[in-house]
Design a binder for these strands. Structure first.
Lengths: 352, 352
DNA sequence: AGGTACTGTGGGAGCGCTCCCACAAGTGAT
DNA sequence: ATCACTTGTGGGAGCGCTCCCACAGTACCT
């Protein structure tokens, strides 16, 4: 029965484009043009359509649009880590803040996807294969992660937050880890320290390596020889910092400064120093990395290298949106790989 | 050009249902049945279709499915708080863990949506109006939040994690706050304490009120009269706990126990007690709520009421999926409102 | 033999949008 | 007046699915 031959059916009574068109006395195409902000519409028509949209409370059907236009208006922030780490590290929350801020300017929707274990990874692969997002933001990727290659194979635009190596093929955004490491060491040198130890981050993280490089070059350029016994590998955890500091102190009791590759590791190191009766900064100066909340609340407050993480998030979105916009014949891809590097800043506090 | 009259077009060369059907030598409908696990397919046909799916690497097009079936296979976890709180409170991370675990059994996708400020709230309203999710999980909702009503109006299935009041109309999952408050007080009474103070949570949070109720009833049932001067309102923050403890101590110097409405507030209270030279638990016994990481690491370790938050997340998903499944004529809605309450558990440590 | 029922299957008719071609109407040069 | 553009507009033809009706085939009763 019924006059209706489609409209007003299953979708829960929501108005459709067609209904808006009828109401405004124009064609379907014209309404579509107004909705999508095409300039090829006269002012009068536009006004009429907008009125009809408002009266009917029209909201476009995303599924129909996605089907017809072959895009989803959604991007995913993929975290190849268990939820736990995501929540415990301020890095992610800052990044998310920047991403969210930049994205709120657009119509894009952000999905947060964790891929910490095999099961989750398989789901993610399915998800990506179904092209349920227009692009992907990848944070905290280890050197041997296959995810970037999967993304490339599926031809899904992606931006990575820390390149996996100097030869990273994906578009990437990073802070200047080399410069950060360098400035930390230079600051300690300028303070008259000469036996400067370094607790590194996980060395399969490219950024951690770069910090070491910066530290080395700063010492060398100041005319010091780099004493390898003053370098000890950590793993970004507090326990790791604790362990490394213990070893360093045993090996080089004469050290007068420590540059830790993260604030959390600095906290671990501080505990050892205190237990051993070394005063900070009088006996040993301490510098961290990240300028996280820990740094401000530490006793004494910790000098630390600040990374513009929020800004990184914003830039990642910018780049990703660009990549999505000019998705064109695969030919021009990969040639002009883009790497953005943002400056770090040393925040000086009482620990040095 | 082209034999194709549709298939093999814009979608980036991904195989379609039709192509799978051709390959398997069956009709479109049959393939659809196999994909969706309908029992009305013969074993031989099913095998043939599955083979074709595997060979072609077929993955259903979500947009097309959503359009045709009027569902999205996605649900949203809506957090009406700024990101910051979300990250700083273990409550959310535990909840997310439970939710994720339960959801990984299904094909449903989880979206995390923050609605901490007006702008984000408007976006969320748009999002919900567009019916981009099949259901919503609501956590940490204040008494006067309009979100639940919006959801009801849009007829979107929703489950709330802490009811706004005893008269909550939405399906809800909660822990037994009354029982938790009661067990904390009973524990202190059993330990021979008689002047038991209580630092409450924000009283516009229903659960916080219920904890007070439990505390009151426990004292009353033990034959004590409730001294209102022993009750002071906090706000779930450490500073709030600090303030409240200061007032309580000034008002009732003879108190011999404190039940704080959260571990974080207990931490604030502990600091005051220590500064005032009260030994824990010798002079004053202390009990918290949440059994968070803080409780275990406090000095002395804090007795606390554990809520099964992960389990709550799982139950919320169960209920939501049910509601989505039997979405039927609005008539049967709202009548049988469902409230699940999970038991709490007192974890005894050295502070009491 | 006819009826009734159920099982398995094919394929038409949408879902609500975007894309794009066709075309009317206006503008200005020839 | 003619031609060549430009601007604005309508609507057909899909996008890849699900839903459901129709129907062939088989089985089991009368």
């Amino acid at each position: 029965m019924a006059t209706g031959h489609g409209a007003r059916s299953r979708s829960g009574g929501r108005p459709t484009l067609e209904e808006v068109a009828a109401r405004a006395g124009v064609g379907r195409g014209t309404v579509s043009r107004v909705i999508n902000g095409s300039p090829r519409v006269s002012d009068a028509t536009r006004a009429a359509v907008e009125a009809a949209v408002a009266e009917l409370g029209y909201v476009p059907n995303t599924a129909a649009r996605a089907l017809a236009a072959n895009r989803t208006d959604a991007i995913a922030l993929v975290v190849p880590e268990p939820e736990t780490r995501f929540f415990s590290e301020p890095y992610f929350s800052d990044m998310l803040k920047g991403v969210g801020a930049e994205l709120s300017e657009t119509e894009m929707q952000l999905l947060l996807i964790f891929a910490g274990n095999d099961r989750e990874r398989r789901r993610l692969a399915q998800y990506l294969a179904a092209h349920r997002v227009d692009g992907v933001l990848l944070v905290s990727v280890h050197a041997d992660d296959p995810l970037p290659d999967l993304l490339a194979q599926l031809e899904i635009p992606a931006v990575i937050s820390g390149p996996r190596s100097a030869a990273e093929t994906l578009t990437s955004v990073d802070s200047d880890n080399y410069g950060g490491g360098r400035s930390a060491a230079e600051h300690l040198l300028a303070g008259g320290r000469s036996r400067i130890a370094h607790i590194t981050g996980r060395l399969d993280v490219y950024g951690a390596q770069r910090r070491v490089d910066g530290y080395r070059d700063a010492l060398r350029d100041a005319g010091h020889e780099v004493d390898e016994r003053l370098i000890e590998a950590g793993d970004f955890t507090e326990e790791g910092g604790h362990r490394a500091m213990t070893k360093l102190l045993a090996r080089c009791p004469d050290l007068d400064a420590v540059f830790a590759g993260s604030d959390v590791m600095a906290a671990g190191a501080r505990q050892v120093l205190r237990e051993e009766g070394r005063r900070i900064p009088d006996d040993v100066a301490l510098v961290g990395y990240d300028d996280s909340a820990i740094a401000r609340h530490m006793d004494p407050p910790l000098t630390s290298v600040r990374q513009p993480i929020e800004e990184m998030g914003r830039r990642m979105i910018d780049l990703l949106l660009e990549e999505i916009a000019d998705r064109r014949p695969a030919v021009s891809r990969g040639l002009e790989r883009r790497q953005v590097v943002l400056a770090t800043e040393l925040v000086t506090r009482a620990s040095s």
